[in-house]
Design a protein around this nucleic acid. Structure first.
Length: 760
DNA sequence: GAACCCATCATTTTT
DNA sequence: TGATGGGTTC
């Protein structure tokens, strides 16, 4: 096996029986998995048809698919490479009838769940304050993960009034889902397990098929997933799990670290292979990570090492406040660019999404194109949810939740009162809301809105007929047109409306794209893809951009240059975790820190602010304990304060007004910053509902010297600062640093490649 | 039925 | 700070 180290080779060639691969960060895990599959096929003559590889995200599945295809060649397409959830959907689409359900079920996402729980609360007259929707969803999800049926949940709640009520909510929720012919994400796993338990013949069918099973990111599995894998692997026992307990950061969503920690107890004959050689980071970075993670107890014994050069020390900078931190990060980014590095080599990582705002604002001011990863999901946007609601409803009229969502969107005079009457009627007669819609004359007291209702019913029936004809692109366009959805937005004529229209166009593109490429396009399958495949944000190519995201989202990625910002007590580690009575909470934060550090290949910049606005209040955080845990000889400190300050005197005694801000930094960073004026005025706020990645800041095409048509003395126009005169142009790195004296904004320096200046 | 105001409450997130 | 949701008012 070419290019594999002995441990990696061992992991690839040990094919029979249970195998645990403890793959440290950057140890070539994906390579091992793909090589192992290739080995199974070419050396062990395993039929590709008998191999199953499970991952967590579609992205990971896609990447694995690609690499497996490349390395295996013939037969690769018959390997199942899949996420847990899509695997279960595939199975349930075939066998859900055996459980008394339909094979054509709808999948409910978080939003649908929320709506369903709300309905249940209303029905049972529970107060949302006492039984918050979020908490109820979490409780139901937890129950499902440990296979507690509503009845069992009720039994366990014995004597606990509140839990008994939660059981009632859970029971009603399940009832609701069933009558809506819908399954939520947890159901997908649980129902598959149910199926296997109740129908051993079906289980055996899949056991026979999946003789070799591999599970990636095993530390992220929850209990239900653990059981599912165990069942599938029970017959042939060729189960290979790959993971890193030190990178377990998803406990809050049910991941059970003991699945990996106790693998050897579950499978006493398991072989364990540790991949400890890191190929990613400099030794300084790696040892910093090792230093931090060593403070955790209860981890698998392993120590990562590398043959990579030492590299530079980790840099820790303490800034005056969050804004100063953003300025400082930008400055360092420019420094790196001057050294010839590109933005796509850099990432800014933070603990909470709320931190992105200040950073974004600064990036916009400094013309640094960036890409936000994560945040609001494309499919979570209102307009998208509305249109998907229509599609769901057309595909599955029993889906009361989706119908409820769109019945008066856009406004068509079917108001709350009317809908409530129809709902009550449906409930009373055991009908679906859609049934009632078609037959609304029966419902007493609807006379006034009757006309509106029949018009809408007619509209929906028309869509359903259209859906049967099968052209999804046309159907989608007709929905936009005939419901007046598009028209309403066009009339609005605001930035927000335009952005929504743009999103709707994007959805349209996705649908025609799906229709073009799918083997047998169907509305059901389209919706399945929409529900299951959330990673919609294809990289817009052609622009060199900085990546910004949470530490969680960064898992599995790597960048030459990484900024970890907000290294402050109670921000990171989060206050929530420090206040938690779960002793593992702090350790999970530490693992998150470990994940962050190990994303960096060449250089790691950490920073903290001495003053930060959190939830509308000013706080004076101490620097994070994790900074302390990095071995001193690997860390270089910079900026105000040495060591962990008490935080009592963050201003150095000077009062700090908002307006003095720019001046201070002007003093501090003169000659290097690109701002020469105070900049409190031009705050660039995100338009509500606008795409999370502000399109305006994403600049396509990098001007080269050839495309720069202005020179010193020319008047140019800037997208933000308006007109100005070029006073200086200096070649720096791969392009020009241009100084412009703006009419209104004063003098600023910027990179020609980023500033998008136009000669006027 | 829609606009407006006030109170409340704030990690992390994929499927 | 800011988003969100409920309640109120027109």
């Amino acid at each position: 096996m070419a290019g594999l180290n002995p441990r990696q080779e061992e992991a690839c060639s040990y094919t029979e029986g249970p195998l645990l691969i403890l793959a440290g960060a950057g140890s070539g895990k994906t390579r091992v998995i793909t090589h192992r599959i290739a080995y199974l096929i070419s050396e062990k003559s395993v039929n590709p048809y008998n191999i199953l590889a499970i991952t967590f995200t579609n992205k990971a599945a896609g990447e694995m698919r690609e690499r497996v295809d490349a390395i295996v060649g013939f037969g690769a397409e018959s390997i199942w490479v899949s996420t847990f959830h899509s695997m279960c959907v595939r199975i349930l689409r075939r066998f859900h009838e055996r459980l008394g359900g339909k094979n054509s079920f709808t999948i409910y996402d978080a939003d649908d769940q929320k709506a369903a729980v709300k309905e249940v609360l209303r029905l049972l007259s529970f107060d949302e304050k006492q039984y918050p929707v979020r908490a109820m969803i979490a409780a139901i999800s937890k129950a499902k993960e440990s296979f507690l049926s509503p009845d069992e949940y009720d039994r366990q709640a014995a004597g606990n009034y509140r839990d008994q009520n939660v059981a009632k909510i859970y029971r009603e929720y399940q009832k609701r889902l069933r009558s809506n012919n819908a399954l939520d994400f947890d159901d997908l796993i649980c129902k598959t397990i149910d199926l296997f338990m109740q129908h051993p013949d079906v289980l055996e069918l899949y056991q026979e098929r999946f003789r070799y099973i591999m599970v990636d990111e095993y530390q992220d599995t929850n209990h239900a997933q653990f059981v599912l894998v165990k069942m599938l692997a029970a017959k042939y026992r060729n189960l290979c799990v790959v993971g890193d307990d030190d990178q377990s950061i998803y406990k809050f969503r049910g991941a059970n670290i003991y699945n990996i920690l106790n693998f050897e107890e579950e499978y006493p004959d398991a072989k364990v292979v540790k991949l400890e050689q890191n190929y990613r980071s400099t030794s300084n970075i790696l040892n910093a990570a090792n230093g931090v993670i060593a403070n955790n107890e209860g981890r698998k014994d392993k120590s990562l090492w590398t043959e990579n050069p030492e590299g530079e020390k980790v840099l820790f900078t303490r800034y005056e406040d969050d804004r100063g931190e953003a300025v400082g990060v930008c400055k360092k980014i420019f420094d790196l660019m001057k050294e010839g590095h590109t933005l796509s080599e850099m990432a800014v990582l933070y603990r909470t999404n709320a931190q992105s705002r200040v950073l974004e604002e600064q990036m916009i001011r400094e013309n640094i194109p960036y890409q936000l990863v994560g945040g609001t999901n494309f499919y979570a946007r209102r307009e998208i949810r509305d249109l998907v609601g229509y599609l769901k409803c057309i595909a599955n009229p029993a889906d009361d939740i989706s119908l409820g969502r769109i019945i008066n969107v856009p406004r068509r005079g079917i108001g709350d009162t009317t809908v409530t009457k129809m709902r009550d009627f449906a409930l009373e007669h055991g009908m679906s809301l859609y049934d009632v819609l078609l037959d609304a004359e029966q419902v007493p007291g609807l006379s006034r809105s009757m006309a509106k209702i029949s018009a809408f019913a007619e509209l929906m029936q028309g869509f359903r007929r259209e859906a049967e004809e099968g052209n999804l692109t046309i159907l989608y366009d007709d929905i936009l047109k005939k419901t007046g959805y598009r028209e309403e937005l066009e009339r609005e004529n605001t930035d927000e409306a335009r952005s929504r229209l743009e999103n709707l166009r994007e959805l349209g593109n996705k649908i025609s794209d799906y229709e073009l490429h799918a083997e047998h396009p169907s509305l059901t399958e389209l919706l399945e893809e929409i529900s299951l495949v959330a990673d919609t944000d294809e990289q817009e190519m052609g622009t060199d951009r900085l990546t910004m995201m949470t530490l969680h989202s960064a898992k599995g990625l790597e960048f030459p240059f990484v900024f970890m910002v907000g290294m402050e007590e109670r921000l990171f580690p989060s206050g929530m975790s420090l206040d938690s009575d779960d002793p593992d909470a702090e350790e999970e934060e530490r693992r998150l820190c470990y994940v962050g550090i190990t994303r960096a290949k060449e250089r790691l910049f950490m920073s903290a602010a001495s003053r930060r606005m959190v939830n509308g209040t000013i706080t004076y955080p101490e620097e994070s304990r994790f900074i302390d845990e990095i071995p001193k000889n690997l860390l270089r400190r910079e900026g105000r304060g040495e060591g962990r300050s008490s935080g009592n005197d963050p201003f150095g005694g000077r009062p700090l007004g908002r307006d003095s801000y720019g001046d201070r930094y002007y003093d501090e960073w003169q000659g290097t910053t690109f701002q020469k004026k105070a900049y409190g005025s031009d705050r660039n706020r995100r338009v509500p509902g606008a795409p999370v990645r502000p399109k305006a800041t994403i600049q396509k095409g990098i001007p080269t010297a050839a495309t720069i048509d202005y020179q010193v003395g020319d008047t140019v126009k800037h997208i933000k600062f308006g007109r100005g005169v070029v006073t200086e142009m200096v070649k720096g790195g791969s392009d020009y640093e241009v100084t412009v004296n703006f009419d209104t904004a004063g003098e600023k320096r910027m990179f020609a490649s980023l500033a998008k200046l136009r000669k006027v």
